[in-house]
Computed example of a mutant assay.
Amino acid sequence: MLSEQSAATVRATLPAVGASLAEITERFYDGLFAAHPELLRDLFNRGNQAAGTQRQALAGSIAAFATHLLEHPDERPDVMLGRIAHKHASLGVTPEQYKVVHQHLFAAIAEVLGDAVTPEVAAAWDEVYWLMANALIAIEKRLYAASGQTGWRQWRVVGRIEETADVATFQLSPADDGPVPDFRPGQYVSVRVELPDGARQIRQYSLSAAPGSPVRQIAVKRVHGGDTPDGEVSGHLHARVREGDTLELSAPYGDLILDATDAPLLLASAGIGVTPMIAMLEQLARTGHRAPVTVVHADRSPATHALRSDHEGFAAKLPDAAVHFWYEQDAPESAHMGLVDLSAVPVASGTRVYLCGPLPFMRAVRTQLIEKGVRPADIHYEVFGPDLWLAQD
C-alpha cells in the first residue's frame, strides 16, 4: 500500500514523529478550531477536547496506522478503520472535511518538527495520511448509502423510564410517523441537541432494545463532569427532555454487532456498557440461541446497575445461560463482591466475546479470557468516547 520510497522515510522518521504526536495533535486542534470554531461548537465533543482524550485517540490512530503499513504492507487495518468510519458516519463527517484536517495537521507537523520536515518527509507522511483518509472516505460512503438516511431525523420521546439515580431510558418514535429502520444488535445512534449557548453537540448512545421494536430505546447515564463541559449533553437530556419532546438522531452505526452464529457467546460489560448487551441478549432470546451464553457484568452496586431486570430476564429466557455479576459494594448472595475474576467461570471452546465498558475493565477481562484460551480474534469491543486502546498500547 505504501510506496517503497515513502516506507523507508516513514520507518526512519516514525520514532521522531511518534514522540512528538502529542504536541502535534495539540497544535493541530488549536489551529483547526481557531480557523473553524463551528467544528468545536457543532461537531467535536467539547468534553473530550477539554479532557485531552480526543488528542490521545488521534495520535494513537495515526501511529497505529503508520506502524501497520510498515509491518503488514499487503494488509489494511480494516478493524481499526471500520470503527473510526462508523463513528465518523454517525457524526456526518464529509470528504471535504478531510482536506481541512490535512491542512491543519500538516501545518502542526511542520511547526513542531521544523527543519526535520524535508520535502521527502512531508511527501511520505502525506502519503500515509491520504491512504488512511481515502480508506475512511470510501468506507463512510458505503455506510451512508447503506443507512438510507441523509442527515438528521426527528424522533419524538414517547416514554421515559428512570432506571437508576443517574440513568434514564428514552423511548423514541419517528416524528414523521415513518418506518423504524432496522439495525444490528450492539449498534448506536448519535443524538444531537441544542444547548443553551447555541452549540449543537453530538453524543453516541447504544440502542438498548433489539431490532423489530416499534420504538427506539436508548439509556443515558448522566455524567458528572465537574469543571469541564463533559456531561453537558447527558445533563441536558436528564434535566430537560421529557415525553412529548423531540430529538435529532442519526442512522444506526457501530461495528460491535451480534452476528447470527451457533457459537458459544460471552457478553461482558461494566457500568453503562450494559446497554448494547441488553439488545444482544434480547435478540438471542427472540431467535432461540441454544449454545451456551455467559453473561458477565461489573458495577458499583446493585442500585447503580442499570437495566438489571432486563439483564437477568433476557438471560433467563435462554436455554443455556449463566449470569455472573460483580459489585464493589452491597453485593447480594447471588453475586460476587469486588472486581471481575473469571478464574472460576467456565468458558466453552470456540466462544465469541463482546466487551463494552471502561477501558481498564475491558483490558482486564480480555487478558483473563486469553489466558483461558479464547482467541484474540474472537474478542470484540466497543469504547464509549474516544478509542484510547491503541493510544495506550
Rank of each mutant, 00 (worst) to 15 (best):
V189C: 10
G226K: 08
P196N: 11
S90H: 00
V293I: 11
S234T: 08
H224K: 13
D78C: 01
A209R: 10
R83E: 11
V340G: 10
L284S: 05
E312T: 12
D245H: 11
G148Y: 01
V374G: 14
G373Q: 13
A291C: 11
G273M: 04
I139M: 08
T304C: 14
W389A: 12
A34E: 13
E26V: 13
P276Y: 08
F314R: 07
K87H: 05
R41M: 11
F361M: 15
L284M: 11
D227Q: 11
Y327Q: 08
A322R: 15
H238E: 11
L237I: 09
I84R: 02
H336M: 08
D330W: 07
G114Y: 02
V323Q: 09
G244T: 01
L388P: 07
D126P: 12
E382W: 03
P276K: 04
L339N: 06
E38R: 04
P358S: 07
E71K: 10
L69H: 00
A89E: 04
A377W: 00
V274N: 04
F106K: 03
L355T: 06
A344Y: 09
D230L: 14
H86R: 12
V158P: 00
Q56A: 15
T294M: 05
V345A: 15
A316L: 05
P185R: 04
R160G: 06
K99H: 07
A219I: 12
V157L: 05
A123H: 10
A50I: 03
V117K: 02
K99G: 05
L237A: 05
G148N: 06
P229I: 13
D30G: 10
P376I: 01
I137P: 09
I84K: 02
Q187C: 12
D166S: 15
I24V: 13
E194G: 15
G82L: 10
A279V: 06
E382T: 01
W152I: 00
G198H: 05
P179N: 12
V10Q: 06
D310N: 15
A377M: 02
A335Y: 01
L81K: 03
C356D: 02
D166A: 15
L390V: 06
V345P: 15
P214H: 07
G47Y: 04
L172V: 03
P73M: 08
T25A: 09
D166E: 14
F314V: 06
D166C: 14
P264E: 03
E194Y: 09
L318S: 04
D177E: 11
A35G: 14
I24A: 01
F384D: 06
N48D: 14
V158H: 02
S206V: 05
L113I: 01
V121R: 00
G178S: 08
E243F: 03
L136K: 07
V189A: 03
L369Y: 09
Q56G: 15
Q368C: 05
W130Y: 09
G31W: 01
M337K: 12
F33Q: 00
A146S: 12
A124C: 05
D259Q: 10
G198V: 03
G350C: 12
R11N: 13
